[in-house]
Design a protein around this nucleic acid. Sequence first.
DNA 1: ATGGCTCTGTCGCAGAGA
Length: 263
Amino acid sequence: MKIATWNVNSIRVRLQTVLDWMANAQPHVLCLQEIKVTDDLFPVASFEDLGYHVAVSGQKTYNGVAIVSKYELTEVLVGFPDYDAEDQKRLIAAKIGSLRLVNVYIPNGAAPDSPKFAYKLEFISQLHRYLDQLHRPEEHLILTGDFNVAPEPRDVYDPEAMEGEIGFHPAERAALEELKRWGFEDVFRRHHQESGLYSWWDYRAGAFRRDMGLRIDHIWASLPLAALSVDGGMDKKQRSLPKPSDHIPVWATFDAERIAQSA
DNA sequence: ATGGCTCTGTCGCAGAGA
């Protein structure tokens, strides 16, 4: 079972790119962020034609998340039950068979001295509370999406230069580490330990050409589920194609039979 | 170097991204 996450930076601009990638990569589940459309304008039919189910939480211009799945999506939950997140559409969850999946677009934060950074930390704190309220670490649970935080020095191109900058500030790394201690393992890191593996490169200043990237898109699995993971990866080629998103797809595979057996 | 691109809403630029 292949699960993927991709911040596409506008689904309308990137639709064909995403469909082409799916035809090749064949994910069972794809979590999208920054779709930048209202629900009614999301190209549902394009995915349904390929045999996928779709759950969307979008808004005009900014943010927006969606889950695209070969398996039926049930118990779809949009946003937080008791926190309005300033009406920003950044969270969608669903049950897929016995699997629970949470797709999140954590706020960027703008700059460490910005109110948006406080909102980012508050959002991560609310996400922690959300897990406490709705889930247990013993479940087969995936938390995935654009986390907008590079967890460790090996996840940034220049740890010294980036220290304290947005995406690699100690406060957000600590918040993310605390979230992880709820009961998750970074599935990508289970399979790849080396530095220099990034999921995002700035559009500006030839950042991709100079490989100035960050690993900020993640697939976390609860510990029982992480034990059933088979492989993980990131499709860097997608960043070199014409009109790319600034993020690339991140994916992980799991032993579907053992997931079904232990359900 | 708070920009260097890219996208949206709207047809000038401004806001956001990270």
